[in-house]
């Protein structure tokens, strides 16, 4: 009995070591897997804005009602080859606002455009399974957003169904 138990445990131990982890290879963006899990939607719970030039700045805090991000894989045809790209979109008041390619690492999330050196870069301050805190700097103005994982409702496509 003991031997059997040891047998199972010893093999299980090495099997566990091989479990897939939230890890990245070069050129991979390891945070995306976490961001797109489940529905891939993250509600903006809180927005804080302040002047980063002051040591003890006044922080303006707001709580948007229905703003959220959505992270998903978008398949594009590039030179006759289907390529899976990591995308993020943003919804304001429940309505689609914008989408772009995203590079998401444990330290940084970048919404990139088609041009090198351009895009919005957010610094990851907290990286949890159901909660993220990101900050963004634009000159002397810093913004911090708190995101909570959600099953946010996407807007219905326009148009009518007719018989």
């Amino acid at each position: 009995m003991t031997k059997n138990l040891l047998y199972i445990l010893s093999i299980g131990l090495f099997a566990l070591i091989s479990c897939e982890k939230d890890d990245a290879s070069l050129g991979d963006y390891e945070l995306f897997k976490r961001l797109q899990s489940g529905s891939g939607s993250w509600k903006v719970e809180q927005v804080e804005v302040w002047e980063n030039t002051e040591e003890n700045p006044n922080i303006l805090t707001s709580h948007p009602t229905n703003d959220f991000f959505h992270f998903f894989i978008h398949t594009q045809l590039i030179a006759d080859i289907e390529v899976d790209l990591e995308f993020g979109s943003f919804y304001t008041n429940g309505m689609f606002s914008w989408k772009s390619k995203v590079e998401s690492e444990t330290e940084r999330v970048s919404f990139v455009t088609g041009l090198v050196g351009e895009g919005d870069v957010w610094t990851v301050e907290l990286n949890k399974k159901n909660k993220q805190i990101w900050s963004h700097v634009n000159g002397s103005v810093s913004t911090r957003i708190t995101l909570i994982k959600c099953n946010c409702e996407f807007p219905k496509p326009y148009g009518e169904m007719t018989g």
């Binding site: 990245a24 980063n52 810093s142």
Partner: peptide
Amino acid sequence: YPDGSKSLSNDFYFNGVFK
């Protein structure tokens, strides 16, 4: 920054995650 916050914004080319 003076408020103590840290940023990886693309305003400065020394900012980055080098792997």
